[in-house]
Amino acid sequence: MAEWVHRYARVNGLDMHYVEQGEGPLVILAHGFPQTWFSWHRQIPAIAAAGYRVVTFDQRGMGQTSAPVDPAAYDVPHTVGDLVGLLDHLGEQTAIFAGLDFGLFAIYDMAYHHPERMTAIIGLENPAWPHDPQRSPLAEAADLGARHFYHLHYFTAQPGVADAALNAAPRAFLSKVFYALSGDYHYINVWKHPPETAYLEALPEPPPLPWAWLSELELEYFVNDYARSGFTGGLNWYRAMDLRWQQRRRFEGVPNPVPFYFIGSENDTDLEAFHGEDPLAKLHQQYSDLRAVEIIPHAGHMVQMERAAEVTQLMLRFLYELKTPSS
């Protein structure tokens, strides 16, 4: 922790917060919602010690980075522009990108628009865009939300309602959702509640901290940032889903050209429910240079924290393979 350097820079029209450690080839780590740069805190020192310059940043709308109010500011050109702008600011032409959730989806978008600036991708949990060419994400969310509680519909159907509820209780929300997304709970049980349920009511009551993978102090990092920023920026990533869906349509069926490594987990809700049937079987069609697929047992969507040692070991293996390609 003492070797982390916190920096702030003007990137792509944002005041962006990022954390840096180490020297060598650049590795950029991108988080999802409702996380921050801190979700990678167990990987940063190990990757830096292996001879890399590690940078992890707060995504637009989250943590200590600017949060535009307009959901249209979370479309593909903006979120890809953040990654390219960060590369430019760091003075690097290329990087290895690793990500999870919304951070990873932005990386996938960058691979189609600027593959020449990417050495490789290490994807966690989300094997590709959750993309149905026939039906927009928010139309599907509305259908599901009419039948039972569905968080995407709750976030997007009545802008302001979800924001107010979550902003009023950041600690309760974060502790509940982190537990619900972990391998210690089956997240799909949240959907058993009726449509009118609020998210805080649908989420399970978590056990007292510390957990095996999260301490009180670690939770405090997330709570402090979201208590200051609020959750509207993160929710705007959901509200821009249809816009990004439209912008991605021209790449439908086009394999991702960047070398790709995948780390999933046995109990991840996204692999179970958001990527169609048997998503791992489709990877060879979705990536023209698929290098490895690894599944970590007994872990959920918070895998880089739940099983930090295993994730770090796999990432270091992939980085070593990139540095010393077989002949």
Score class of each variant (00 low, 15 high):
residue 198 A to G: 14
residue 67 A to R: 12
residue 143 D to I: 12
residue 78 H to D: 08
residue 56 T to D: 03
residue 44 I to E: 01
residue 19 V to R: 01
residue 225 D to E: 14
residue 74 Y to W: 08
residue 42 R to P: 00
residue 203 L to Q: 03
residue 28 I to P: 00
residue 95 A to K: 08
residue 225 D to M: 12
residue 171 R to P: 05
residue 180 A to M: 11
residue 269 T to M: 08
residue 50 A to K: 07
residue 213 W to S: 03
residue 49 A to L: 03
residue 158 Q to L: 12
residue 318 F to C: 13
residue 137 P to R: 08
residue 116 E to S: 13
residue 130 P to D: 13
residue 223 V to D: 03
residue 165 A to D: 14
residue 257 P to N: 05
residue 67 A to M: 06
residue 279 P to E: 05
residue 68 P to D: 10
residue 42 R to K: 13
residue 107 I to Y: 03
residue 120 A to M: 10
residue 156 T to W: 05
residue 86 L to I: 10
residue 309 A to Q: 15
residue 54 V to G: 05
residue 283 L to V: 05
residue 4 W to C: 01
residue 223 V to A: 04
residue 269 T to P: 00
residue 128 A to T: 12
residue 304 Q to T: 11
residue 29 L to C: 05
residue 54 V to S: 07
residue 136 S to Q: 13
residue 90 L to F: 11
residue 43 Q to V: 05
residue 177 V to E: 07
residue 322 L to D: 10
residue 105 F to V: 13
residue 186 H to V: 15
residue 55 V to C: 06
residue 94 T to G: 02
residue 30 A to D: 03
residue 151 H to I: 04
residue 91 G to Y: 11
residue 324 T to C: 09
residue 208 P to D: 13
residue 150 Y to N: 03
residue 165 A to E: 15
residue 171 R to L: 05
residue 310 E to T: 14
residue 322 L to V: 09
residue 155 F to C: 04
residue 83 L to I: 14
residue 186 H to C: 07
residue 263 I to W: 00
residue 123 G to W: 01
residue 304 Q to E: 09
residue 294 E to T: 15
residue 105 F to S: 11
residue 167 N to K: 08
residue 64 Q to F: 12
residue 95 A to F: 10
residue 155 F to K: 01
residue 237 W to S: 02
residue 293 V to Q: 10
residue 135 R to W: 05
residue 242 D to I: 04
residue 111 A to C: 15
residue 159 P to Y: 09
residue 56 T to G: 05
residue 259 P to H: 02
residue 97 F to T: 05
residue 94 T to V: 13
residue 299 A to E: 07
residue 159 P to M: 10
residue 204 P to C: 09
residue 270 D to E: 03
residue 264 G to R: 02
residue 202 A to R: 00
residue 144 L to W: 02
residue 310 E to W: 02
residue 179 Y to R: 09
residue 321 E to D: 15
residue 205 E to S: 13
residue 227 A to P: 00
residue 121 I to T: 11
residue 10 R to M: 05
residue 90 L to V: 11
residue 97 F to P: 01
residue 93 Q to T: 15
residue 13 G to W: 06
residue 325 P to V: 11
residue 295 I to N: 04
residue 211 W to N: 02
residue 311 V to G: 01
residue 65 T to L: 08
residue 147 R to L: 13
residue 111 A to Y: 02
residue 202 A to Y: 00
residue 101 D to L: 07
residue 55 V to E: 01
residue 79 T to S: 14
residue 315 M to I: 15
residue 29 L to W: 06
residue 58 D to M: 07
residue 13 G to R: 04
residue 184 D to C: 10
residue 91 G to N: 12
residue 273 A to E: 03
residue 153 H to C: 08
residue 261 Y to N: 00
residue 42 R to D: 06
residue 277 E to S: 06
residue 4 W to A: 06
residue 63 G to W: 04
residue 287 Y to M: 06
residue 77 P to H: 07
residue 280 L to E: 11
residue 163 D to E: 15
residue 108 Y to R: 10
residue 200 L to H: 08
residue 14 L to N: 04
residue 12 N to C: 07
residue 82 D to R: 07
residue 96 I to P: 05
residue 83 L to H: 12
residue 318 F to G: 09
residue 25 P to D: 14
residue 9 A to R: 08
residue 313 Q to N: 13
residue 293 V to A: 10
residue 258 V to Y: 00
residue 183 G to D: 12
residue 33 F to M: 07
residue 82 D to F: 09
residue 251 F to C: 02
residue 128 A to C: 07
residue 314 L to T: 08
